[in-house]
Structure formats: structure tokens, C-alpha cells
Amino acid sequence: MKEWQAKLKEFINWWREAFSSSGGLKVIFLKELADNLSSTRMGILFSLVAVACLSALYVAAQSIRQSVGQEETSFVFLRLFTTSGGSLPPFISFLSFLGPLLGLALGFDAINGEYNKRTLSRLLAQPIYRDDVINGKFLAGIAVLAIMIATLGLLVAGLGLVFIGVPPRGEEIGRMLAYLIVSIIYVAFWLSISLLFSLLFRQAATSALAGIAVWLFFAIFAPMLAGIIADGLFPVTDESPPELVLRNAVWKQNLSRLSPTTLYDEATLYLLNPGIRTLGPVLIQQVIGAIPGFLPLSQSLLLIWPHLVGLIAGTLIIFALAYYYFMRQEIRTS
């Protein structure tokens, strides 16, 4: 009895020594959180995104109200997010376009900022593990992004309720929450990119520009590039055989799916439009006999599973790279 107790105690002590945190992670997390939430930068960006998204909501609600009775009324609550009205794009387009900016803004000077302020060596001389610094910054960034996106989403839901007066059903709430979670993952991807750039570039401005360049590339040029490559590989004319046309379309889609922006756009489209069954090319034979209707949430989730895994894997790979660089970086200041 005594012996195993002693052994257990020994084991617990060893466990504590080996796996206990230095306590630094929590302190750094809380400090970064406070910094981010109180920074002017965040205030400006959040206002920008909020104004864009709320005006999109207002226009969407207007057009839904006008079309009451003429259109299908099921899932009307989700249409708040996807309806565009007049010259304004819908809420999801705004978030898809501006979300990366939020992620980039939070991280582009995370490490090189500490370096330039000459606080990094003082910070690392404290009794904390080195990875506490980068983990704390990443987690605090994600927490801030999650707070912002959840706030926006719930704000839109609440205001939408007031505007259109139709309460959401359980499935609609589920879809909306899933949409918000996917958005958080997507923005976290951009946070990890900017964290990596903040390690690779000593100047905050360079790192911010690099982040914006990658963002524009994925948002605007990647789909075009995918089209050019697919057309180059499988040139399609009016007389081309159907296999070639199909192959061209599939290649185009798969190439553009290399871009996280495409992955995210497709995933959110599936989530918020239960009527959509596929985004790829469909042959008439495949549609024959299909009963038009809405997919349940679980089936929509199944459809976007690869997209989700791709986004999470991308985020983790980029963060792992940043982690690796940070752990190996020399911290000399002169």
C-alpha cells in the first residue's frame, strides 16, 4: 500500500515536471487578448467589416420582404446571409472577402513587432517555454477572431429577426452556427499565414504586404489561373467531345480548390443553401429521377467535409511552419 502510493506520487511529480506548463501560456494569452481587443487597429477593422456586413443584411432583408409570397419561403432565415440586393453583395461575400483581412491584421507584426520593440529577448529570458509565446499569440488571435465573427453572426441573426419577423428553425440555427465555425477556421488560416510572415520578415510593413499579396492572389488570381491551366491542358472548342469538356471543368474546379478561398466559399455555399447538392459539373443522366428538395444538415456537412479538412490541415501546416521557424530563430538583437 505504502509503496504504490510512493510510486504514484513519484509518477505524478514526474508527470508534472515533464508536462506541466510553465504558466506562461495563460499569461501571454491574456495579455495578447487584452492588447488585441483594445488596439485601434482592431477597432477600425471591425467597424469596417461590421458596416459592410450590416448594410448587406439591411439590403437583403429589404429584398426578402419585397418578395414575400412570390418565392419559396423555407429557410428564409438563411437567405439573410446569402441574398444580395441592388448593388450590394450578400453578407457571405463580404465576410469571405474581408475576413482574411481580419486574420492578417491580427498577426502580421506578432513576432517581428516584439523583435523591433526589443521586448522579445526580455520576454524569452523569463521562466517560460519558448513556444508559449507563439502559442499564446496564436490562441489569443483565434479567440479575438472567434469573438468578432460570433458577434457579427449573432448580430445579423438578431437584426434579421427584427426585420423579417420569421423565427429560425432548429436546423437553420445549426447551419448558421456551422457557418460561423467554418468562418472562424478560415480566418484562423489567414492568422497563421500572417504569423508565419511576421517571422520571415523583419519589417512589419513587408510582412503585411506579403500577407495582402497572398490574400489577393487567392481571392482574385487563383481562380483565373486555374481556368488558364485547365484550358491549356484540355483546350475546349464548340466541337469538343463531351469527355474533354467534362475533364476541363473538373480540372478547373479541382485546381481552384487548391485555394483556401475557394474551399471556404464552396463550404459556406453548401451550408447556407440546403438546396445545393453539388457544385461540380453534373450530367443530365445523373439528375434524372432525382427529387428536388432540401438536404438535411448532416448531408450538407458530409459534402463539405473535405473542404473542412483541407482548411484545418492548411491552417495547421502553416502554423507548424511558423512554430518551427520560431523555435529555431536566433534571438540576437544586434
Partner: peptide, 15 residues
């Protein structure tokens, strides 16, 4: 690092 306090050359603080 618990035993040693380090004042780096040209020390920086969070402004």
C-alpha cells in the same frame, strides 16, 4: 531563467 534576471542591451518595453 528563474535564477537569472537579464537586462538586454537597449531594453524594450510595450509602449
Amino acid at each position: 531563467k528563474r535564477l537569472v534576471g537579464y537586462l538586454p542591451d537597449n531594453v524594450g518595453f510595450y509602449d
